[in-house]
Design a protein around this nucleic acid. Sequence first.
DNA 1: ACCGCAATTGATAATCATTCTCGAATAGTA
DNA 2: TACTATTCGAGAATGATTATCAATTGCGGT
Lengths: 150, 150
Amino acid sequence: MVQEQKTLLAAADKLKEYKIKNTPQRQVILSYLMTSHDHPSIEMIFNYVRGNGFSVSLATVYNTLQLLIDNNLIIEIAADSGGHMRYDYFEIPHYHVICVNCNKIVDVFDDKYKKNEENAQLETGFQVFNSQYEVYGVCPECQKKLAQEA
Amino acid sequence: MVQEQKTLLAAADKLKEYKIKNTPQRQVILSYLMTSHDHPSIEMIFNYVRGNGFSVSLATVYNTLQLLIDNNLIIEIAADSGGHMRYDYFEIPHYHVICVNCNKIVDVFDDKYKKNEENAQLETGFQVFNSQYEVYGVCPECQKKLAQEA
DNA sequence: ACCGCAATTGATAATCATTCTCGAATAGTA
DNA sequence: TACTATTCGAGAATGATTATCAATTGCGGT
């Protein structure tokens, strides 16, 4: 069995686990997010699904992503400059370091930031179920580029 | 001197400090963000400025906010459901606890989350200059409401 | 205090991401 | 296999954001 089929099955299992009705579109979108680490935009997801021989419309991509967000399977990242939302499968807690120059997003698998959730709950009385940490800076490549220009 | 005038002067000082050219519109917008703690949306800011007898267009509100963001004077908060961006003066580090039901935003003045910036820099080689932490949950009021409905 | 000019404003138009609509297709169940 | 609620999708509608550009204005230099 080729790798591609395995990840499709993994996605199907995950959908079943969350009691989300399975469709080819949902399977492909989720499997893409589960295996790729490129924090794709809506457009990238749309192109990926069509590029792999599945039919899909933009409306379906939007609907599916919202559904996965509501089920806490994925998160939405606001990559500020450029203004496009990006999406990320979020089984393992991690945070994002974002380059404000080229919008690259790098994962850091460290869940220390999650410890603040407890405190947030105590301070505010909110019933907390998730949190997100994002760091802004300039990536090594852009540091070089910007130094040359100056 | 009335309070309102004081905050306008404070905003003017801040603009000078950051070498941003002073205009009435910028002064009012910044003073609003500096003194209000209601994390306003674009629309709220627009209405506030007009409501206080200053002329302004939406384009100017957008431009001014982007300028203040670029100067790290304010930050943009993605209040997910509803999808409207909210803005917050950010001199004193704090994080936001957001109600996913009513979109209320509560400040928690605790900068422990900022400690992760150092690690992010080490892990990724990025030159880090800022970070943002957001917690998602249900506020006490909405907890009651949702319990009653069930 | 005034000049000159680069920067800003603002009304409106243009753009473009996202949501809506609703008939057709489909998944899951019995 | 048949049934029914759900989902899909093409295109239209919406609405937030950005672009345009002439008129205005802030401000450093004189």
